[in-house]
Amino acid sequence: MSAETNNTPPTVPPVTPIIELNGVFKYYQGDWPALTDINLTVYHGDFLFLLGATGAGKTTLLRLLYRQELPDAGEIKVLGYDLLTMKEKEIPMLRRKLGIIFQDFRLLPERTVYENLEFVLRAINTQSDMISSKIQETLNQLGMTHKKNSYPYELSGGEQQKVAIARALVKSPDIIIADEPTGNIDPKAAEDILNILKDINYQGTTVIMATHDAELAERTRRRRITLDAGRVVRDEG
């Protein structure tokens, strides 16, 4: 369990589990086990590393959490939603509470930094008069205000990842799910990104970060779960 439980919102006690996986199995192509008997509880305010080599099941596990895929067996609860029984129309409600970050950034290339963030806020029906201030506030937090009119191709890898974080953060999520966010950037930028995620966590947001960089995770001294061939082989920190 995480040591970082400071600054948690008063309405949610620090010990509240916000993610629960019980006996989760996931197979691809019928019988190829991507995940085997995963049992995991994540508490509010946790900073959790998902470690493992390529193909260990990290991304599959994350995809299950934001309901991009369903397990073949087991139970998953995220923020009170039972992901197996929830209705299709509830999925957007769940995802509005999650901030998802990818290794390849997935920014919209024809839109500026500001427009990339605006796009998200518009998509989730944020009031028009709130949009500008929310974007400004988020870009300030990440030190990216000066790049708000830049297009993604004008930014470095680290800056693009910061925009991707801003995009996840701008809607004030309860959980940040980051899939190899430092995988495509240089070590210095990776350090910056990690520090940003730690800051976000200090402010009360739960962070789950998948990475194959065990050294980076160890240095950070947070909860580390190691997957190997779809099984949890270690849960430490």
Binding site: Y66, Q68, K89, I91, P92, M93, L94, R95, R96, K97, L98, I100, R106, L108, F119, V120, R122, A123, I124, N125, R167, K171
Partner: peptide, 17 residues
């Protein structure tokens, strides 16, 4: 499609998409 994917991931409703 890339925008639609992002919209779905951030929680845009089907109507909005």
């Amino acid at each position: 499609s890339e925008e639609i994917q992002i919209m779905e991931l951030v929680g845009a409703s089907r109507i909005a998409i």
